[in-house]
């Protein structure tokens, strides 16, 4: 099963490598990992997307909690939550027809064209991973020149919060 785990940790040098090292040393999967400081600069907020049986996920959360720098964590998948990912896609847009088509597709997916050049467009798209996948699928494979995705960030819905 896919799980999305949110972690609040001390914003210390090396904190990220402790988490990454834990996953590799214990053979856990990481689908994606995002991290950045929060509004309180002493704290980092990390989102990890991983897969595993219930037993493995239980071990992952216990082992993460055991890291001294980890203050709190939450398995977002346990309740209502929102997940977003940002993708930048550079596409071929050389002919008028291609430019037209890209503009149309970007609109359908509520993407924005954020860079326009002679032969390319760069489109920004946010949403759940499945929406980004769908956008990629909708493009002809030859049209894609480059993609970059941030990996998911997540947050609980309503009063569900992860804070100290």
């Amino acid at each position: 099963m896919r799980h999305i785990i949110s972690i609040l940790m001390e914003n210390e040098a090396g904190a990220l490598s402790r988490v990454a090292g834990l996953f590799s040393a214990r053979g856990y999967n990481i689908e994606s990992l995002t991290v950045a400081p929060t509004e309180d600069a002493t704290l980092s907020r990390m989102t990890i997307v991983t897969t595993g049986s219930n037993e493995i996920i239980e071990q992952i959360t216990k082992q993460l909690n055991k890291l001294i720098d980890v203050i709190k964590l939450q398995d977002l998948t346990d309740g209502d939550h929102i997940e977003r990912e940002l993708m930048l896609v550079k596409v071929r847009a050389a002919t008028g027809e291609q430019r037209e088509e890209m503009k149309r597709l970007a609109d359908i997916f509520r993407g924005r064209i954020i860079d326009v050049a002679d032969r390319t467009y760069t489109i920004e798209l946010t949403g759940p991973g499945s929406k980004l996948d769908a956008f990629i699928d909708a493009l002809e494979s030859g049209a894609i020149l480059e993609t970059v995705r941030t990996g998911a960030s997540g947050i609980g819905r309503g009063d569900r919060m992860l804070k100290i």
Binding site: E55, E58, Q59, K62, Q63, N65, K66
Partner: peptide, 8 residues
């Protein structure tokens, strides 16, 4: 004392 030892 270590939760991660339990049900491992």
């Amino acid at each position: 004392i270590d939760p991660s030892s339990i049900s491992k």
